[in-house]
Structures are given as C-alpha cells and as structure tokens.
Simulated scan of single mutants.
Amino acid sequence: MSETMKAVICHGPRDYRLEEVPKPVPGPGEALVRVEAVGICASDLKCYHGAAKFWGDENRPAWAETEVIPGHEFVGEVVSIDAAGSKRWGIQVGDRVVSEQIVPCWECRYCKRGHYHMCQPHNLYGFKRVTPGAMAEFMVYPVEALVHKVSKDLPAAHAAFAEPLSCSLHAVERAGITFDDVVVVAGCGPIGLGMVAGARAKSPAHVIALDMAPEKLELAKLCGADIVINIADEDAVQIVKDLTDGYGADVYLEGTGHPSAVPQGLNILRKLGTYVEYGVFKDDVSVDWSIISDDKELDVLGAHLGPDCWPAAIRMIESGLLPMDKICTHQLPLEDFQKGLDLVASGAESVKVSLIP
C-alpha cells in the first residue's frame, strides 16, 4: 500500500492546492479511515474566501490555521483500528463510520459539563493542524473523537450529509417547537432543508420556507414545508402576519448566513417569539436591538454544530424520509475541488456538493 496520498491543503485564503502528502498513521486507540465522501460546507467556502471569522481582523484573532487538510462533513470505511479503539467506539475494520465535526478535549469546563460542542480548544476537523480533515484519500479519527456507524446501503454522499443534518436538528432542538407554532425557516440550502425536515418532525401548525430559488422551494416542500415563499417576489413578513391574525411567527430559524435574513427574522416574529441563528456570516451584521428588547422581548438563541443529534440525523437519512438524491446534487473527484468550491459559491446550480476521493 502506498505511503502517500492525495489531499487538498489549505495554504491560506484562496490558496488551496491538491498535493501528494504522507498517508496518516493512526496511534494507539485511533482509527485509520478511507474517505468515501466529503461535503463542501458554506463555512468551508467562507474560510476559503478569507472571512474574518476564520482568519481574523482588527476585532478578533485568527482561528483557522494553514497547512491543514479541509473537510469536516464526511464518511469513510475503517481500514485499521486496534482493540482499544474498537471497544471504545464499537466499530471494527470494514465498518462505515462518520465522526462528529468537533474533536473534544474532554477536560475543559464545557466538556465536563456535557457541552462538548463548545469545547474550549475547539479542534474541528479541517481547520486545525491537530485535526486534519477529509479532503484526502485517508484520515485518522483521534481517540477523543465521537464516532457513529452508518449503513453501507446509502450512497456515500448521502451518508456524509449526517453532519449538516445534525446541525440543522440542533437548531430545531434549540427552538423548543410546540404543536401550535408557526415556524419560519430562512434559506433552503443544506442547513435550511434539514431545519425544515426537523421542524416538520416536531408537528407544528405550519413550517414555512423562505428562499429566492423556485427549485429550492420545491425541494423544501419535499422536506416537509407546507408553505413556501419566494422572497424575491413576495412580502414574507406580510404573508406570515396575514396567516397569524397579524401577530407573526412563533419561531424563526436562520440558515442562510446572509445579513438581510437577520432583520427579516426580527420583523417576521411575534412578540415573545424565538429566533435561532445558525448561519455563519462572512460580514458583520447590524440590527435595531430595540426590536429584540423593548418592542418584542424576543428569545434570541445561537446554535453551533450538532451535539447529541447525530444518531437522529443518521436515522432520518437511513429512513428514506428525505429526498437525498435531490439534495446531494453534485459528486466530484477530489481533483475537482476548485470546481466544487465554485459551485457552492454560485449557489444557483447546486444544493450539496461533495468530493469523492
């Protein structure tokens, strides 16, 4: 077996290169995994483009690192694991497995209190040198990783969708949706579609999806939206108010990362409504905070990663409930990673783009 492999290497913003690098060697208790598919996330794209959230600015230090293999939503086959790792994770050679996107330290106050997704060191696959990602032929799952088995009957790109879907489901959980709620989901990309499906699973009165692309709104219907609104042509705020006797939505889930979606959400919500922010923003966002406080007394919640939601996400994908063939629109060879990034940047031709090493 070759001692090298092909991998995409991040050398900084807009400087990603396909290179031949040493194949990783697992340590005690670790798993060597042959990557079957890796999705390209909107956060991967924003990191590629140099967003301050990743590379820092005058208000924040850099978080991402160079000389790192990107890719944090993936699936692969175990090719090597020792007895300790096999026992800890309940997996063996030949199993198809995913690993949660964060590799917790298990020692900080957040990990010890059960909030491992907010781990202080915050080592995510694909952004830190200590946790190389999956845009490569092989990768290693460290001993601290959280690992789950996935059905081999799924196409690889579908199995890798467990990562964005777990994120969507966490945002839904944060919202505390009840049966009588009118839920609005902003954006029908991979995260928004997962939010639609997760919200529908809570059986609220309505799940309303917002987007500017008619084909994505049709896809939202297949995921569980009973009302869709094209915000390019229709006044979403007025439509929701008309539906709710002038009050507004109970819950707003933001999954676009576009600055305009924030004031849209504040205006579409009723008094005492709940706003959940999942989107990752390239630029800073300004809003009238008096809407949050004096006008409506809103609950504004953040959502990050997909803690404790991976088993549910995997079950949902394996159940066939989601139109995965329509969600996973593009699978490209690793060599075409730049084309993949460009497809995600365009947004017009794709929903979920994956690389197949």
Score class of each variant (00 low, 15 high):
residue 93 V to D: 06
residue 94 G to W: 05
residue 94 G to K: 03
residue 94 G to L: 14
residue 96 R to V: 10
residue 99 S to G: 12
residue 101 Q to I: 05
residue 102 I to R: 08
residue 102 I to H: 01
residue 102 I to S: 02
residue 103 V to L: 02
residue 105 C to T: 07
residue 105 C to H: 07
residue 106 W to H: 13
residue 106 W to N: 08
residue 107 E to I: 04
residue 108 C to H: 09
residue 109 R to N: 07
residue 110 Y to D: 01
residue 112 K to D: 01
residue 113 R to N: 14
residue 114 G to R: 09
residue 115 H to G: 03
residue 117 H to P: 07
residue 118 M to H: 10
residue 118 M to I: 09
residue 125 Y to K: 00
residue 125 Y to S: 00
residue 126 G to F: 01
residue 127 F to A: 04
residue 127 F to H: 05
residue 127 F to W: 09
residue 129 R to I: 08
residue 129 R to Q: 14
residue 130 V to A: 09
residue 130 V to N: 00
residue 131 T to F: 00
residue 131 T to V: 08
residue 132 P to G: 08
residue 133 G to S: 08
residue 133 G to D: 06
residue 134 A to W: 00
residue 134 A to I: 00
residue 136 A to Q: 05
residue 137 E to T: 11
residue 139 M to Y: 02
residue 140 V to E: 03
residue 140 V to K: 00
residue 140 V to A: 03
residue 142 P to M: 06
residue 143 V to P: 04
residue 143 V to L: 11
residue 144 E to Q: 13
residue 145 A to N: 10
residue 147 V to C: 08
residue 150 V to I: 15
residue 150 V to A: 07
residue 151 S to E: 02
residue 152 K to R: 13
residue 153 D to M: 05
residue 155 P to W: 10
residue 157 A to C: 11
residue 157 A to S: 13
residue 158 H to T: 01
residue 159 A to K: 08
residue 159 A to R: 07
residue 160 A to L: 10
residue 163 E to M: 02
residue 163 E to H: 00
residue 164 P to Q: 11
residue 164 P to H: 11
residue 164 P to K: 11
residue 165 L to Y: 12
residue 165 L to E: 12
residue 166 S to M: 05
residue 166 S to R: 10
residue 168 S to R: 12
residue 169 L to N: 11
residue 173 E to K: 15
residue 174 R to C: 02
residue 175 A to Y: 14
residue 176 G to M: 14
residue 176 G to I: 13
residue 177 I to K: 05
residue 177 I to E: 06
residue 181 D to V: 09
residue 182 V to H: 10
residue 182 V to Y: 06
residue 182 V to R: 09
residue 183 V to M: 09
residue 184 V to K: 07
residue 185 V to Y: 10
residue 186 A to K: 01
residue 186 A to S: 15
residue 186 A to T: 01
residue 187 G to D: 02
residue 187 G to Y: 11
residue 187 G to K: 05
residue 188 C to H: 11
residue 189 G to Y: 01
residue 189 G to K: 03
residue 190 P to A: 14
residue 190 P to L: 09
residue 191 I to K: 07
residue 193 L to S: 13
residue 194 G to I: 08
residue 194 G to K: 03
residue 195 M to I: 06
residue 197 A to Y: 06
residue 197 A to S: 14
residue 197 A to R: 09
residue 198 G to D: 12
residue 200 R to F: 02
residue 202 K to I: 06
residue 202 K to F: 12
residue 204 P to I: 13
residue 205 A to K: 15
residue 205 A to F: 14
residue 205 A to C: 13
residue 205 A to P: 00
residue 205 A to S: 15
residue 206 H to M: 11
residue 206 H to P: 12
residue 207 V to W: 15
residue 207 V to H: 15
residue 208 I to V: 15
residue 211 D to K: 03
residue 212 M to S: 03
residue 212 M to G: 01
residue 212 M to K: 05
residue 213 A to K: 13
residue 214 P to K: 01
residue 215 E to W: 15
residue 217 L to F: 01
residue 219 L to I: 13
residue 219 L to R: 12
residue 220 A to K: 02
residue 220 A to F: 00
residue 221 K to Y: 07
residue 221 K to I: 12
residue 223 C to A: 13
residue 223 C to V: 13
residue 224 G to F: 13
residue 227 I to Q: 08
residue 231 I to Q: 08
residue 233 D to G: 00
residue 235 D to A: 04
residue 235 D to Q: 13
